[in-house]
Design a protein around this nucleic acid. Structure first.
Lengths: 259, 259
DNA sequence: AAGTGGTCTAGACCACTTT
DNA sequence: AAGTGGTCTAGACCACTTG
């Protein structure tokens, strides 16, 4: 059974913080390991001699740090660290497309998980200003919007929305649900837009409730946002891809020169 | 005065979520703008006809999303969006060092804020395995550890810890608090380690309580982590720099080729 | 002094999971 | 049925900020 100290009523830190601190320490020191159940709120409330609401406040603090997740009717558990997926910036290299593989498939093979894509939707829309600016579109130009969700071993890890100028998608499979081997980048290259370079803008924030639902994120888990723009050999922006990734599941790798 | 609806007791969503939803909507729709005060807990509790604890739970939800911040004795305020600092990957270009400017100074000039560095500490330590591995050090090799905190217009935005193999720091200013114009990269180059390339590994997570304190982060604000490794022209790793950035204040920009 | 959020109590009923 | 977390009530006292 887990050993826990007692509250010091003389301490200026409020009881709920002291309790949170002791539980955090138990997790960090390995007394409570990943997946293990934290003592029930009733047990903690009795052990520390405080009201249940006070214990709940302590647990809430750990939840918001992402240290534990609670499951209704089962208990509170130490969050197991998900396998980290390293994304190297060569994942869009032409040699992969030449083999008919999309970027997500390439990563999956390298990291050894089962890739899956669902919730694919394709529409045609007038882009918002951020997308229009990146694609240097004129007022009224339309884009093909491809949204989808990626899963690794059945767990959602990322949502992505691609925006391709409608003019570039004409007479290609880009506007169909199945884009064929190598994905949209392969289709763009066949249409004469040989890809030359990409830029990525990386940020992080807390997810919206909608994103939490789609990515099945526990409370207190942030997301990484990556907006990628693809340019062809004429330095024309041919695609903007807006992705939202479950932060704990990713490590992004970039390289650049000192010149 | 802010217009708010009423709770629907027949709705399957609990009252506190309905209240959180209405407040979130008021913020997103612009009825409540950045910096503005949210109605007091007493006022909300009376308006909705619920106990104060129920209102607090709603506000807690918004706090954990980073939408609002509360100030003891003053009220709850819509969080103003901080100015975003875009970090381009040319910020370590040699031309900047040649002008005697460190990377942080370069960004500051471009973005128009006042840069500041404090909490500088320099020690000599045996590195942990992650650092030792990146620097390809042998058992027992020491590193010079330089830690500091960066502020923009007086607000903490980033902490950084650099690890430089002690062998490379010998007879340089690297082990002194003031490293001179152009910073440690300029000193490394003077010592014959001309820089060739960098790699960066980017992730995001919730901050530790210590990081929240040092970066003065409100509850529910994630951090971006960037681990940069610098290589010289012989492809020897000469520095590892571990940084933790307040996520809302940053957008990282990277470019790479399609080859 | 008045108003604000921070913390806490001692209950209650509910929904969910497991036995 | 028993145990778990989820939600809620109706109070209380405190610390902090402002007029």
């Amino acid at each position: 059974m887990l050993q826990l100290g007692q509250i010091d009523r003389a301490d200026d830190k409020p009881p709920y913080r002291q309790i949170a601190g002791m539980l955090r320490e138990a997790i960090n020191s390995g007394q409570l390991t990943a997946g293990e159940r934290v003592p029930s709120e009733a047990a903690l409330s009795e052990h520390f001699g405080v009201a249940r609401m006070t214990v709940r406040q302590a647990v809430q603090e750990l939840r918001s740090e992402g240290l534990v997740v609670s499951e209704h009717g089962r208990g509170v558990f130490v969050r197991p660290a998900p396998p980290i997926r390293r994304l190297a910036s060569d994942r869009f290299a032409r040699r992969h497309r030449a083999e008919g593989k999309a970027a997500f498939t390439v990563e999956a093979e390298k990291s050894g998980y089962t890739p899956q894509v669902d919730n694919i939707a394709v529409t045609r829309e007038t882009p918002n200003s951020a997308v229009a600016e990146r694609l240097r579109l004129s007022e009224g130009d339309e884009v093909v919007v491809r949204s989808r969700r990626y899963l690794a071993d059945g767990r959602p890890v990322e949502t992505a929305v691609s925006y391709i100028p409608a003019a570039f998608a004409r007479d290609t499979k880009i506007e169909q649900v199945d884009t064929g081997p190598g994905g949209i980048y392969a289709r763009l290259e066949e249409a004469g837009h040989t890809l030359a370079r990409f830029t990525e803008e990386v940020g992080a924030r807390m997810p919206t409730p909608e994103e939490r639902r789609v990515l099945q994120l526990a409370a207190g888990v942030p997301v990484l946002t990556v907006v990628r723009t693809a340019f062809d050999t004429d330095d024309v922006a041919v695609e903007v891809c807006d992705t939202v990734k479950a932060a704990p599941a990713y490590l992004l790798e970039y390289g650049f020169s000192a010149r």
